[in-house]
Simulated scan of single mutants.
Amino acid sequence: MPDVAELTLYPIKSLDGVSLPEVSLTAAGALLGDRRYMLVDAQGRRVNGKRYAQLHRLRAQFDPGLRQVQLWGDGQAAQFDLQQERDPLQTWLSNWLGFPVQVLEAPITGFPDDPYASGPTLISTSTLEVVANWFPGLTAEELRQRFRMNIEVSECPPFWEDHLFAQADQGVRFRIGEVELLGINPCARCGVPTRDPITGASYLGFQKHFVVQRQKTLPPWAEVSRFDHFYRLGLNTWIPKTEAGKKLRVGDPVEILAVEPLSAYPELSRTPQQPL
């Protein structure tokens, strides 16, 4: 049976993650602290790695309570309390980026990449290892930083997570420890995985080669109808409100329970918010 090998949160969207031994769930079915903060410019437009490759050069380190952040890059460094020093933090980031930014906060929902499947993302260690072999010079650790997933599972074959989505009107109910989740769809990827996570430099031909290899190695258990394109990797999930306050822990077993119609979850509905 697969189990959880690593849990990673990304407190400030697009910046470095932090690995924790356990994570609580909010009332919105999000991991507490994940993508809690997001940068926007003076016009309210999102400032993220997808749009600004220079963010890859900015390092961030958080304390275990996710209240303090150390930032450094391009010869500059500073430390801030995320709750008490918001204005100085915004000023420092604005100076570092070269244009004004504001730090927004969403403590309950976070700022998920997919507002429909707004739960944690999931991938297997063996998948990262196989995909790394597609690209000379890359390692599983670097792929881990490029794809930025929340839950990593081990003790399973490559692409095992493709068991966890079904047809478009269905979800796969599964359990991690004490938490029940619903697998929704394979993650559509953006330009971030094509870049070096430290320098922001592009890997020439990354997306094209990935698509060819992903299609060639798609496992027989994957629901092929969910691949309108093959630049997809990992799983998007949704978690019902009944799981609020429960915890995911490293070492928790992962068990598939059932394939169910999405109509069984009336609270799961598309929102007008657009993907980030």
Results as ranks from 00 to 15, higher is better:
R57Q: 15
L58S: 07
M38W: 06
R51M: 14
L248Y: 02
L276W: 10
A78H: 03
G75D: 04
Q68P: 00
F99C: 04
F99K: 09
P253V: 01
S24R: 15
A60F: 08
I176L: 05
L31W: 00
P64G: 13
G29N: 01
N236K: 06
I198E: 15
E223H: 14
G137K: 08
L97R: 06
G171C: 10
E129G: 09
Y265R: 10
A77G: 02
Q61V: 13
R232D: 03
T194P: 02
G191S: 15
L143Y: 05
C187N: 07
R146K: 04
L39H: 02
N133Y: 00
L262F: 00
Q102W: 05
Y265K: 13
S126M: 14
N150I: 01
A53I: 08
L39V: 03
Y10G: 12
Q145I: 04
L233G: 03
Q170H: 15
R232N: 02
R249L: 01
T139Y: 06
L89S: 11
G245S: 14
Y52P: 04
F210I: 11
D16M: 07
K208S: 14
A42H: 13
D16V: 05
P266V: 13
Q43V: 00
A28H: 03
I184W: 12
L55S: 13
Q43R: 14
I239D: 05
V4A: 07
L104K: 11
Q68M: 11
E129R: 15
E243G: 04
